[in-house]
Simulated assay, not measured.
Amino acid sequence: MKKLILGLFAALVLVGCSNENSKAEPANEPKAKKKVVQEDGHDYQYDVVTSATTSTFGTKPDAKLTPEQKEKQMFWSVQPPIGVVKGHYYKNEGLFDGGNKGILELVTDDDGKLIHVEFNEFASENYYEPKYANASKRLSDYAFFQATNTRTDDTLVTWVNGITFLEGQMLQENRLDGNFETVKGSSNSARNGMMPLAAAMKDWVKKPFGFYYYGIAEPLGNGSTARLQVVTKDGKITQVAYDEIFADRKTDITDATLQNFYRQSKYYSLDYERETGDHFVETVDKITHQALKSQDLLRAEKQDSETYTNYMRLAEKLQTEMK
């Protein structure tokens, strides 16, 4: 979520070292094993390790694949969970690896079982590629930027692959601490950012803190998914976030002029507004601000826009869940 609840919990300042895939010290490289996992209906074949891998950051080896070959072989998903998710809410955040900001959000049921795990990262203010400074690595085109680098010719993975793989383990194993497998070639954020934040929360989830999460996501039928998320504290709305996320495949997006935004969201895309003229962020900020101020998801000034219509459809359903 872009609007952070400042002061919800004390932020952890995490100092990590960049340790991914360097061939300078092969003797220290952990042994990887092949693993096939299924996420979002897609089969992934990963090289996984149980400790940090060394870094090829800053290198640009000779290309082994054409862009067309990589597009066919690489896949990652940015889709939210479809349907309604409700439960006790916890959030932790912190800086790591030179100023990148990690945000981990958890939702548990009444028995303390994890039912939703989501990690987001925003690149540092002085990120080496200026376009991505302060940008969402999950929902902008950042993963495509990674995919164009020849360093990923061998691994065929991006930031998103490494994070969704770890999120899946935490959910399946219902734990936040201890060692986890990570994807070789995409383990920095997982090990230096997400895992320390999660470990610090292991005791938090043993009891409710008074924060409750309501989330809903539904396909819009045009190749994008609408998502509305609300957090309450002792019944009072403290956070409202709305977004529309484009499909993982170009061909699923009905408007050909929008197909280049696949695997991005309208809110976090760095190019969507500039290229389409759609003031999506401004519209959403206005709607969610009114909902937060009025403490009513449906009390938003009527607008003649598709964004408003889509938001209201989800808001009506979610408000019912909140009663």
Rank of each mutant, 00 (worst) to 15 (best):
K286Y: 12
V107N: 10
K317R: 15
A199G: 04
D285V: 09
Y132V: 03
E316H: 14
E282A: 07
T59C: 01
S51Y: 07
N92G: 03
V37N: 04
E273L: 08
D43E: 06
A52V: 14
R299I: 00
D177Q: 13
S189G: 09
I237A: 00
F280N: 03
A10P: 15
K91V: 10
E306R: 13
K286G: 08
M201V: 10
L270W: 07
G178T: 01
E173N: 07
G168H: 15
D154N: 15
K113L: 11
S187E: 07
G168Q: 11
R299E: 04
S140G: 05
V281I: 13
T320G: 02
E173I: 06
I115W: 13
E275M: 12
Q264C: 00
E125V: 04
Q69S: 06
N174R: 11
P196C: 04
Q172H: 11
I287V: 07
K86L: 02
M1P: 06
P67M: 09
D278P: 12
A32H: 05
M322A: 05
A247S: 14
E218K: 12
S186K: 08
L197H: 11
L104N: 12
G193V: 14
R227K: 09
Q38A: 05
D153E: 08
Y242T: 01
W159G: 01
N100R: 09
Q45M: 07
L292S: 01
Y212R: 14
D97Q: 11
V230D: 01
A300R: 11
Q319N: 02
D243E: 11
L220F: 11
L139A: 02
Q295F: 04
T251V: 03
N179Y: 07
A300D: 03
A300G: 05
T50S: 04
A147E: 15
E129F: 13
E218L: 02
V157C: 01
L297H: 03
K3G: 02
S18P: 05
E244F: 00
P61G: 13
M195N: 09
Q146H: 09
R274I: 15
L65F: 07
P196T: 13
F261P: 14
T53P: 09
T155P: 06
D248H: 08
E244A: 00
F145G: 00
R191G: 03
D304W: 06
F119M: 10
L4Y: 08
D304L: 10
R313V: 03
S189E: 06
T50L: 01
T251F: 00
E321V: 15
G168K: 15
L104Y: 09
G210D: 02
M195L: 07
V183Y: 10
S136Y: 06
V84A: 00
Q290H: 03
P196F: 01
